[in-house]
Design a protein around this nucleic acid. Structure first.
Ligand code: MN
Ligand code: MN
Ligand code: ZN
Ligand code: ZN
Lengths: 139, 139
DNA sequence: GCACTGTTGATAATGATTACTAAAAACGTC
DNA sequence: GACGTTTTTAGTAATCATTATCAACAGTGC
């Protein structure tokens, strides 16, 4: 957070992302911020989400459905439920070893890696049946 | 490939994806196919890329820069070079064990997973210096 | 107050993808 | 190989997400 002013719109945008665990889209954040700051502009939301991500205060991630933001800026992986579409945080696996192995095999300098899991969450398993693509709200 | 006609546009689109290792975008495939079928429509390219991906003949993947297609439909992971932007195939790691562990920890039914690596490829390391975001062609 | 700088809201512009539709191609049947 | 039916295509319009532009505004220091 080195030298970045915390204006009201900016602060509310940051709070909106941190106050949810849905890994929201810009549109979702926009809707939330508008409750408290009705005149905020969608461009302001996009602009500040990018600024905050560049500062490392937020994380930015792209999935099949577009841009999303993550209030948890610590390294972690994600599990996406194909039933309800929710994205859960999961602990990152043994990082070093995995990267070192790939580097040895390929000659690449491996600086980072990220794993995405897919399947059905506890709720969706309990509700039984085959993976019904219900939910899938885009948030 | 159950019941899917192989028309000329469709065949050329499939070949275009298979004949490159750049994990092309739809626009890239469009440019390639046009060399042999100048009147092909961009919509036809998109439509058939999706059809072929649904059939499992191609793989579809989304990264930070949008939609890409992969002629290699077998399970594998990817390494993205932050220097030149190229995406390399890498072998998938011990799949079963990783999924089983996460399932045990969380209660999720883990059906699939995918790891993305980031770093600098051999070429870019040799050309030394800090990761200069040259290349980065969107293909 | 006044210049300076960074931020905002409003809106236009861009770019990627999808939807629509009339015409053409492929198919199955005779 | 003509014929009715189904699928696919080319061309284009429409949609959607994101980015760019810019005049007005707000904070800061003098
Ligand atoms: Mn997360
Ligand atoms: Mn690949
Ligand atoms: Zn679920
Ligand atoms: Zn490289």
């Amino acid at each position: 957070m080195r030298g970045l002013r915390l204006t009201r719109p900016r602060r509310l945008i940051l709070e909106a992302v941190r106050d949810t665990d849905v890994h929201p889209t810009a549109a979702f954040v926009y809707r939330r911020v508008r409750r408290r700051l009705p005149r905020v502009s969608l461009a302001t939301v996009y602009r500040n989400l990018r600024v905050l991500a560049a500062e490392g205060v937020l994380a930015e991630r792209a999935d099949a459905g577009g841009l999303r933001f993550d209030g948890n800026a610590e390294p972690h992986d994600h599990f996406t439920c194909i039933g309800c579409g929710r994205i859960h945080d999961v602990p990152v696996r043994r990082g070093r070893a995995v990267r070192a192995r790939l580097a040895a095999q390929t000659g690449f300098e491996v600086l980072n890696h990220r794993t995405e899991y897919f399947g059905r969450c506890g709720d969706c398993r309990r509700q039984g049946g085959r993976p019904s693509p219900k939910g899938q709200r885009r948030s």
